[in-house]
């Protein structure tokens, strides 16, 4: 089947199988390997990408479902060589260890901060419950999202 999608701002026309998953199309066909496989059943969030701005688990999404839609992956974040404030905050707050879950967390955090400019700590913890991290113990990830929120609101007020 033929699908037409916009991935990180670039229009793509692809031939996909009816049972092909979005994660495999991204990783194998488009070689956007920043999106990670962690469980295949939607429990870990490592494969989180945005479809039309909404966070989606690409391991549970058929490629044909996203026909005509706009997809953003971790590779699509940041502009003109600059990091996204969330990426900056993850570095600054020590929210990265092995890094495997990091793209999924950043995409989830991005969705949260798109929805809500200044989430509370509790709201952050609640929102990232679908993402698993085995290294950091989450504390610095929560701090990083708080800091990213500050950065974004500071930049908006400028």
């Amino acid at each position: 089947m033929k699908i037409r999608i916009i991935v990180n701002g670039v229009e793509r026309e692809l031939e996909v199988e009816p049972n092909e998953l979005l994660i495999n199309v991204l990783r194998e066909k488009l070689r956007l390997t920043g999106t990670k496989y962690g469980c295949g059943i939607g429990e870990c969030g490592a494969c989180t990408v945005h479809v039309n701005g909404e966070p989606v688990l690409s391991c549970l999404t058929l490629a044909v479902e996203v026909d005509g839609k706009e997809i953003t992956t971790i590779e699509g974040l940041g502009k003109d060589g600059e990091l996204d404030p969330i990426q900056e905050a993850f570095i600054e707050e020590g929210a990265v260890q092995c890094g495997y879950c990091t793209p999924g967390f950043i995409m989830t955090a991005k969705a949260l901060l798109n929805e809500k400019i200044n989430p509370t700590r509790e709201e952050i913890i609640d929102y990232i419950k679908g993402n698993l991290c085995r290294c950091t113990g989450y504390v610095n990830i929560v701090k990083a999202i708080q800091k990213a929120a500050e950065k974004i609101s500071q930049r908006k007020s400028k």
């Binding site: 956007l32 920043g34 974040l77 993850f90 990265v96 890094g99 990091t102 793209p103």
Partner: peptide, 14 residues
Amino acid sequence: QRIDAFEKVTGSAE
């Protein structure tokens, strides 16, 4: 800051 963090937050770490 970690020296490997940039690669990891951008999804380019292999």
